[in-house]
C-alpha cells in the first residue's frame, strides 16, 4: 500500500463507522477536537527495550522496543492474544506472578532498571487498573486508603488520610457522587463508579505511570465516556498506557498508538498516522476492520 495516499475506506470506518456502538457524548467529542495531537515536548518516563516474555515455551511478546511518555496516552491495540496485555503487565512486573513466565530485555523507569527497584515501590509508581472493576470488599474510603497505608496497616488515623483520599476521589471524578457517603461498601456502587474507584485507588499513591487494561470493556457506553474523559484529563499529570480492543476508543483517546501482532510490535506512531496513514499492510487491515 502506498503510505502517501490515505485510503478513504479506512478514514470512513474509523471516523463514522456504522458499527460505532453509541455516539460519544458532547464533552468527549469536544475534548477530542480540542486536544493537541503533538508529542514533541513529551517527557520519556518509561522505556521498553528488546522485551521478550514467554510463558513456558510460548512466546507472548517478542523483541518489543517502545517508549512511554508523560503527557500522552499510549494505546496498545492488536487482535486477541497478540501480547498487548502481557506487555502492559510487564511494566509493573505483575507478569511475574504468572507461573512459568520468563522475561528477556530491559524495562527502564526514569533511568532505573525496574529489576533493581523494590517491586512494591515500583508498583506504587507504576499503578494499574484492570479489565473488571475490582474494588476490595470494604468501604469506599478504605479502598482508597488501602493504597496509601503502609502494607495495609491500620495505624494511620482516618483524619490524616482524609485529604489524600479526597484528592484521589476528586481526580477520578467520583467525589461529587460519593463524597458524603464514604462508608458505603464499595461493591454496592454501579459498575462505572466501581471502575472509577479503582482509578482513584490507583491514583492515590501519586504514580508516575498509569496502566489501564481494557478498563471500559465491562462497562456501559455512558460510563465508558466518563472514563475516557477522565483519562484525557489525567494524561497531563502522568503517563497513561491503555490496552484496548476498541479501535474507536484508541483513536479517541490515544495520542500514540502501538499496533501489536503475534507478539511483535508492527507499528508505533502518532494516532493519526497509525489510523489514517498506516505504514504496514497488517496495520491497515486491522484498523480497517479486515481482521481481528
Amino acid at each position: 500500500m502506498d503510505p502517501l495516499m490515505p485510503p478513504p475506506p479506512i478514514r470512513r470506518i474509523v471516523v463514522d463507522a456504522p458499527h460505532v456502538p453509541v455516539a460519544p457524548p458532547e464533552p468527549l467529542e469536544a475534548a477530542v477536537r480540542a486536544r493537541p495531537r503533538l508529542a514533541t515536548d513529551a517527557v520519556e518516563r518509561m522505556r521498553v527495550e528488546d522485551l521478550t516474555i514467554a510463558y513456558g515455551p510460548k512466546v507472548a511478546v517478542n523483541g518489543v522496543t517502545l517508549p512511554v511518555h508523560q503527557g500522552e496516552v499510549l494505546a496498545l491495540i492488536g487482535p486477541s492474544g497478540c501480547g498487548k496485555t502481557t506487555l502492559l503487565r510487564s511494566l509493573n512486573r505483575l507478569v511475574e506472578l504468572t507461573p512459568g513466565a520468563g522475561r528477556g530485555g530491559k524495562i527502564v523507569l526514569d533511568g532505573d532498571d525496574v529489576d533493581v527497584i523494590e517491586v512494591t515501590d515500583l508498583r506504587r509508581r507504576v499503578s494499574m487498573v484492570f479489565q473488571q472493576p475490582n474494588p476490595f470488599p470494604m468501604s469506599i474510603f478504605d479502598n482508597v486508603a488501602y493504597a496509601l497505608r503502609e502494607q495495609g496497616s491500620k495505624r494511620v488515623k482516618r483524619s490524616e488520610l482524609m485529604a489524600p483520599v479526597r484528592s484521589a476521589l476528586e481526580r477520578a471524578g467520583l467525589w461529587d457522587e460519593v463524597g458524603d457517603d464514604l462508608d458505603r461498601p464499595a461493591l454496592r456502587m454501579s459498575g462505572g463508579q466501581q471502575q472509577r474507584l479503582c482509578i482513584a485507588r490507583a491514583l492515590a499513591a501519586n504514580p508516575e505511570v498509569l496502566l489501564l487494561d481494557e478498563p471500559c470493556s465491562a462497562l456501559d457506553p455512558r460510563s465508558t465516556a466518563i472514563i475516557e474523559e477522565l483519562i484525557l484529563q489525567l494524561r497531563e499529570e502522568l503517563a497513561v498506557v491503555i490496552v484496548t480492543h476498541n479501535l474507536q476508543q484508541a483513536y479517541r483517546i490515544g495520542d500514540r498508538v502501538a499496533f501489536m501482532y503475534l507478539g511483535e510490535l508492527v507499528e508505533y506512531g502518532l494516532a493519526a498516522d497509525v489510523f489514517e496513514r498506516p505504514e504496514h499492510t497488517r496495520t491497515a487491515e486491522y484498523v480497517s476492520g479486515a481482521f481481528g
Binding site: 505483575l94 506472578l97 512494591t120 499503578s127 494499574m128 484492570f130 475490582n134 488501602y146 502494607q151 490507583a202
Partner: peptide, 13 residues
C-alpha cells in the same frame, strides 16, 4: 477472582 489479588499486588502490597 485472581484479578482481585492482582489489584492488591498492583498497589504495591
Amino acid at each position: 477472582p485472581r484479578h482481585v489479588r492482582e489489584a492488591s499486588y498492583a498497589l504495591g502490597k
